[in-house]
Design a binder for these strands. Structure first.
Lengths: 134, 134
DNA sequence: TATGCACCCTCTAGTCGCTAGAGGGTCAAG
DNA sequence: CTTGACCCTCTAGCGACTAGAGGGTGCATA
């Protein structure tokens, strides 16, 4: 029922910043809405749905390009959704890889921190480890 | 013994790109070296040590500003290294938080992907989940 | 009616940590 | 003396926004 949202209302309804919405329009992610007499953007429900989709996908860590792809796929409702599955899988795998990298990193940092005896910098193991074979 | 490195040699020795070294100099992270007659940068061992430190810290995910701080601390060798410990701990905690975030994300994506029955887009659960209450 | 204030507009530049390119100069080997 | 690898500066681009200047609009209240 809620037709004709201002950009501020749309922002509030989707948890997006106003500037970000304008940015999405600029890069062609969200279609440009009609304008009011005073040149204000006037959004419809379709925009709200579109932006909700974008937000949700972004929150799940999909890149702008992936979101674009997912939206393109979502619009072809009679096609197989295997392509959607592929995008989601690629993203999941990338996240898993990132988790593995960060876990290794955290482990290294743990070792570094444990080795610190909190004396002077001159014999600090953390500094030493950072500047190898000095 | 190896004095007077060209930027290319320094890059090779530290696994850094030439452009990155110039960038570090530009932002004041690595001190500007002397120049040769032909205006080439000529690096000394001290630069090599400094850049190795930077590389290692960056590889461990420290931000440029954190590296700057660590180097500042490392230079005051008679001070307590508690401040070093603090920086390292903050960074470790930030990484742990990021891991937790990504793990939650991966879990959500797993659920999404599992729910996909690979039919048409019209009843694809992934698309559905992305566009809530459509 | 005036005025204040929240909201909207466009345009530009900044963030982070590089990376890439244009358009040149230098140096050592053959 | 030429070739090719290296070096130089300067500028712009990446992703995904964010912030600010400098102005216009719309509505409620005194």
């Amino acid at each position: 029922m809620s037709e004709k949202l201002t950009i501020g209302k749309l922002a509030g309804a989707t948890g997006t910043k106003v500037e970000t919405i304008r940015y999405y329009e600029q890069i062609g992610l969200l279609p440009a809405p009609e304008r009011s007499a005073g040149n204000y953007r006037t959004y419809e429900d379709a925009h709200l749905r579109r932006l909700s989709f974008i937000r949700r996908a972004r929150d799940l860590g999909f890149s702008i390009d992936q979101v674009r792809e997912l939206m393109g796929l979502a619009d072809r409702r009679d096609q197989s959704c295997i392509a959607v599955d592929v995008v989601a899988n690629q993203h999941r795998d990338a996240i898993r890889r990132k988790i593995a990298d960060l876990t290794a990193l955290a482990g290294e940092l743990d070792a570094l921190i444990d080795s610190c005896s909190r004396n002077t910098v001159a014999d600090c193991r953390i500094i030493e480890a950072l500047a190898p074979s000095a």
